[in-house]
Each structure stands twice: as C-alpha cells, then as structure tokens.
C-alpha cells in the first residue's frame, strides 16, 4: 500500500497523543495548574494534530463531518465518533485540572476508556480489511495499542512501566512481522483465484489494461525492495525498542534522557508505520501481476 505521509502521521501522532492522554486521565502523573496545561497542550497537540492530518488525504475534506454518521458499520466512522468523544471528555477533565485544579477520577476513567477505544478503532480500520492480509490479523490492534501506550508512558514519565512496555512492544512488533509475512499466502488469494483461470494453468499478466499509471497502481501496488525492508525493520527494532530501552535503563533518569528515548522511539514508530503501509500487499494487485 502507498505509504502516504498524512496517514502515517495520523496513526502515529494520534496514537501517541491518546496514549499520553490515557495516562493523564488515570492521574499518572496527576497534574494540575500550569504543569497540567503544558502536558495537555502536548497531548491534545499530538492527538488533534494526528486527527487533522488524516483529513489531508481526503478528496473532499469539507464534508468530513459526514464521516460521523456510519458508526453502526464503519470502523472509520467509529474512530471519528470515539475520538471526538474522547477529546471532549478529556477536554473537560483537563479543563478541570488546569483551571479548577480539580481531578474527577470518574471522568478520567471514561476518558481513559475512550482514548484506548480510539486507538483500537484506528487499528481496526486496517485490521478489518481482508483485502490486505498483512493487516488482517489480531496482532494489528495489539501493536497499535502497545505503541500508543509505550509512547504515552514515556511522555507521562512512567519509566518503569515504559521499560516493560518497550519489551512487550518489541516482541509484538517482531511477531506482527512474522505473522504478517505469512498472511498473503494464508489468504488463499492468488492471480489464479483472481482470474478464475487456475484450472487451466499458471497465469501471468501479458498486457496491462493501460500503459500509464492509475489510481489503483499508485494506491495499492506499492513495492519495497527486500534489502530496504530488512534495513528498515532493523532500524525500527533499534530505535523504537532497543535504544530507548537502554537509555532509560542505563542513563540516570532525567527529562533529557526521556526526551532522547522518546525522540528515538518516535523515529522507530514512524519507520514501523511506513513499513506497515509499504509492506502491505493488496490482493487487487494480483490483477496487475504485481505480487
């Protein structure tokens, strides 16, 4: 799939933001007044920024409001509804903390629930797609969730927790790749089932329907070279996991250390998301014999 920056930014940043909000909502740390202001600024900045960037790849963003209507069937719609709900609830919660210096745990719990919900909805937009077997696996929402929580934990300064989460996340990431690499084969789809010609023999494309580019090739026939992919996977593991882990483990705990770990982790997150899209095979590409 085409790794569009807007979608990568959307999933990565909003995930991070809602992860941070999740910890704030549980009062870990419990902040009020100015510290709370700055914390929430960052948290909302990330989550809202992510959501906004998701509208950049829309053909008609001015109609984006319509996307709230189909929550009954559509994960994308649900993501919209839940995220807005999460932002509202956390908005109140934050306002109370910043201006009234008060913390309402009940509100917090609801907020926490909605934040995680948002991240799961985001993940489900991709997980639901049978057409992209690599995404269509239980590990996808888990991976999204873990990224969100890990980043959140770092932002929230929950170092011990972060260390644990990083370890689990790294394992989950590896597992997602291992499972993902099998998925296309498991899907049972092939150029033979796509064309129905398998019972005659092996099928290959002789002539494409058009000699130029088109939407389908641009969006759904993206290919990463094998070398490139393994390099990026290594970078992901190092920056998202290993390095932050070592920094947090070995360096004396300080804002600086956390920031450094966080920046590295975000690089890894972006690399992971780029791969998440770029590696994903869409079965329609069988028609173009591009898989």
């Amino acid at each position: 799939m085409h790794p569009a920056p807007s979608v990568i930014a959307f999933t990565a940043l909003s995930g991070l933001g809602f992860g941070y909000l999740f910890f704030l909502s549980l009062g870990t740390p419990e902040l009020t007044g100015w510290p709370a202001f700055w914390a929430y600024l960052v948290a909302f900045g990330l989550s809202v920024g992510g959501l906004v960037s998701s509208t950049f790849h829309l053909g008609n963003p001015q109609r984006a409001w319509r996307a709230f209507s189909q929550w009954r069937s559509s994960w994308l719609s649900r993501e919209g509804v839940v995220s807005v709900a999460a932002l509202c609830v956390m908005g109140l919660y934050a306002a109370a903390a910043v201006f009234l210096g008060k913390v309402y745990p009940v509100l917090g719990f609801i907020g926490a629930f909605l934040c995680l919900g948002t991240v799961i909805c985001t993940a489900m937009i991709y997980t639901q797609l049978k057409t992209v077997p690599r995404w269509n696996q239980p590990m996808t929402p888990i991976l999204f969730l873990l990224f969100s929580l890990t980043g959140g934990a770092m932002l929230a300064g929950q170092i011990a927790l972060a260390l644990g989460l990083i370890a689990v996340l790294s394992a989950a990431q590896l597992f997602h790749w291992v499972v993902g690499d099998q998925r296309l084969a498991e899907s049972g789809s092939s150029i033979e089932t796509a064309t129905g010609l398998g019972n005659i023999g092996d099928v290959r494309l002789l002539e494409p329907p058009h000699t130029g580019p088109n939407y389908l090739l641009h969006e759904m026939a993206f290919k990463v070279g094998r070398k490139h992919r393994s390099r990026l996977r290594a970078i992901t593991m190092a920056t998202a996991g290993a390095l932050p882990f070592l920094i947090l483990l070995l360096m004396p705990w300080s804002i600086l250390a956390i920031l450094l770990a966080l920046v590295l982790h975000m690089v890894g997150l972006l690399a992971s998301r780029w791969l998440f899209f770029a590696e994903a095979e869409h079965v329609q590409a069988f028609y173009y014999d591009k898989l």
């Binding site: 829309l58 939407y215 590409a285």
Partner: peptide
C-alpha cells in the same frame, strides 16, 4: 454528494473496481 474521497472503499474492494477521481476527489 456525500463522498469525502477517503478511499477506504477502494481499499476494501478485492477487485480493484473503484477508482478515486483525481479532479473531483470522489470515488
């Protein structure tokens, strides 16, 4: 008139039967 051009439906189609119009931004 209510399509926002998000492209998700095209992603959901196994057959490559949907194309987003680059000029109109609708599916």
């Amino acid at each position: 008139t209510s399509c926002i051009g998000c492209g998700l439906c095209a992603w959901a189609c196994p057959y490559g039967a949907r194309e987003l119009d680059a000029k109109e931004g609708v599916m």
